[in-house]
Simulated assay, not measured.
Amino acid sequence: MIRLEHVTKTFGRGNRPAVENLDLHFEAGSTVAMIGPSGCGKTTTMRMINCLETPTSGRVLVNGNDVANTDPRHLRRTIGYVIQQVGLFPHMTIARNIATVPRLLGWDKARTDRRIDELLELVSLDPAVMRDRLPHELSGGQRQRVGFARALAADPAIMLMDEPFGAIDPITRLRLQDEFRQILKKVSKTVVIVTHDIDEAIKMGDRVAIMRDGQLLQYDSPEAILANPADEFVKNFLGPDRSIKRLSLINVASVMAAPRATAQGESISPGASLHVALARILGSNLQGMDVQAPDGTVIGYLDRDVILACHPQ
């Protein structure tokens, strides 16, 4: 879907490359999180995919086509782009913001209106309430949802997301991450996310690309990176709690036991991670928790000792 071949980008003569000899392949339908210290080249790499920056050398291929030989305006209309500050047009209603690319593509009003309603429902916003509001009338989380809906408007195969949750408070951020993960499963896009948050990268990415000084240090699944950091820098970047972070990749349903004879006390969702479960168990000084399905049925039991046995050493 997206391939970078020996890509180098230098700003100005004599400067150190912002991106140096980068080789990367983003598989169709996968979500890749790009992470690294400030100035490592991750945002520059993303901006070269949709021609907001031009490589000094090397090639960027989208669907086998060199983007250097593509009309940038046409390319950008086929790639969804979500940024940290959302970038909604303040004088336009939510409906008109979402309709930006469909209007450029010449869609008729009926088709555009259907798509607006469909997308607002997808991102859990009521079309009847939200269509005619202006951006300043929405919360930060709502504006981020609208920005995501706008990026999806023309049903692009590729989504680029540059620090999409960076300007949102921590509680809303975690909720939106969970919601967007579910949405991305439904819409099946190739997604590139730039983030500075390692927990977000592990949570959102099927694969994680760790960069430093314009170079790629490691590119693998979150599980593989947490288990086998490529070098000391990556190990330190992941943090001293990287073994605990690996618990976030295991869900409750995969290790729970049969339900207890009598359900009691706190419960947890089968889709929650063991990281979340352990935090709740330790926070409330519990031996374990009942596992409860969305309809309220108790379907299992999670014991603290089971989580600790899963804790990778």
Rank of each mutant, 00 (worst) to 15 (best):
A167Q: 11
L105T: 04
L61F: 11
L134S: 04
A68G: 13
A151E: 04
I83D: 00
A154P: 07
R115H: 08
L120R: 13
I94R: 02
Q85D: 12
S124K: 15
I198A: 00
D178W: 02
Q177T: 01
D126Y: 12
M92E: 09
I98N: 05
A68M: 14
L122Y: 07
P135T: 10
E118Q: 13
Q182Y: 00
D197G: 01
Q182M: 03
H136K: 14
T190H: 09
F165G: 06
F148D: 00
V192P: 06
N65H: 15
D199K: 00
D178P: 02
L75M: 11
V67K: 10
R150Q: 08
M130H: 15
F89K: 05
D178I: 09
E137T: 07
T195D: 02
R150K: 11
P127M: 12
A157T: 02
R111Y: 00
L122A: 09
R145M: 05
L174R: 11
V146Q: 11
V187Y: 06
L125D: 14
L176Y: 09
H74N: 05
T70H: 14
V62D: 10
R73A: 12
L152Y: 03
R114Q: 13
R115I: 10
F180Y: 03
A68L: 15
V191G: 06
K186D: 04
T100P: 01
L184V: 01
Q84F: 03
R111M: 05
V146R: 07
P127N: 10
M159I: 15
V82I: 14
I116R: 05
A95F: 04
G147P: 10
P135D: 09
R76P: 08
S188G: 00
A149H: 07
G106H: 09
T112D: 04
Y81S: 02
M130A: 15
S188Q: 11
S188N: 11
L174I: 03
D117L: 05
Q142C: 12
V187W: 06
L184K: 01
L104P: 01
D199N: 11
I198D: 01
R133L: 14
G141W: 13
V123F: 09
L120P: 11
G58M: 09
I94N: 01
G64M: 13
L176T: 08
D178G: 13
I171K: 13
V82H: 02
I183P: 07
T93Y: 06
K186H: 05
A95H: 11
R175V: 07
R96M: 07
R59A: 11
T100D: 12
I193F: 06
R96A: 14
L122S: 10
R73N: 11
P170C: 05
I168F: 06
F89I: 13
S139D: 07
A68K: 13
D66M: 14
R103Q: 13
R175K: 15
I158G: 02
P127T: 13
